[in-house]
Amino acid sequence: MHSSDAVREGLIELLPRLRRLARALAGQAADADDLVQVVLERALARSVQWRPDAALDKWVFAIARNAWRDELRARGREQHLFAPEEAGDTVADGSEARHAQQMELAQALATLPPDHREVVALVLVEGLSYDEAAVLLEVPVGTVTSRLARARATLQAHLGNDA
C-alpha cells in the first residue's frame, strides 16, 4: 500500500483518540478541532516520513503536541488557551452538579503550565506509559514522573479534592 494511504486509513481509526487528546491539550472544543485539523494536514503532508514499523498513534500524537506548542508560542505564553467561562463547551453531561465539577476541572487544567498539561493529557487522558510519554516528549522518564506528580498536586489543590 502507498504510505500516504496507510497513514490516511490509520488516521481515520485514530481520529476519536486524537480529538480526545486535542481536547485535553487545547481545552475548548473549537480550538481542539482546529488543532486536530492542523495535525491531520501535517500528518498527511508528511506521510512519507512515517515508517510502518513505528506506531502511527505515537507519531501523530507527537505531531499534535508539537502543533499545540506552536500555537501556544504564536498566542504568547501569558495567555491561557481558553477563558474559563468558555469551558462549558467541554461538558458532555447535562446535569448541574456534573457541569459544575467539569467547569472546575477545566479551570484547574487551564492553570497548568504547558509542560504539565501535556503530561496530564498524554498519561492520564490518553493512557501512555511513562516511557512512551518520555520518548514522545524527548525528556527523561524522571522528568515525566516529576511533572506528572506536580500537575496532580496542582489539580488537587484547585479542585479541593477530599475524596
Binding site: 478541532d33 498527511l44 476541572l105
Partner: peptide
C-alpha cells in the same frame, strides 16, 4: 489520586463517542 484520574476520564472520554465534524473527516 484515583478520584482525580476518574474525573479526568469522565471529562474527556465522552469525546471518543462524539460525532466527527465533517471538516475533519473530509480531510481523510
Amino acid at each position: 489520586l484515583r478520584a482525580l484520574d476518574a474525573q479526568l476520564r469522565a471529562a474527556f472520554d465522552p469525546v471518543l463517542d462524539e460525532p466527527i465534524p465533517g471538516r475533519l473527516s473530509a480531510l481523510l
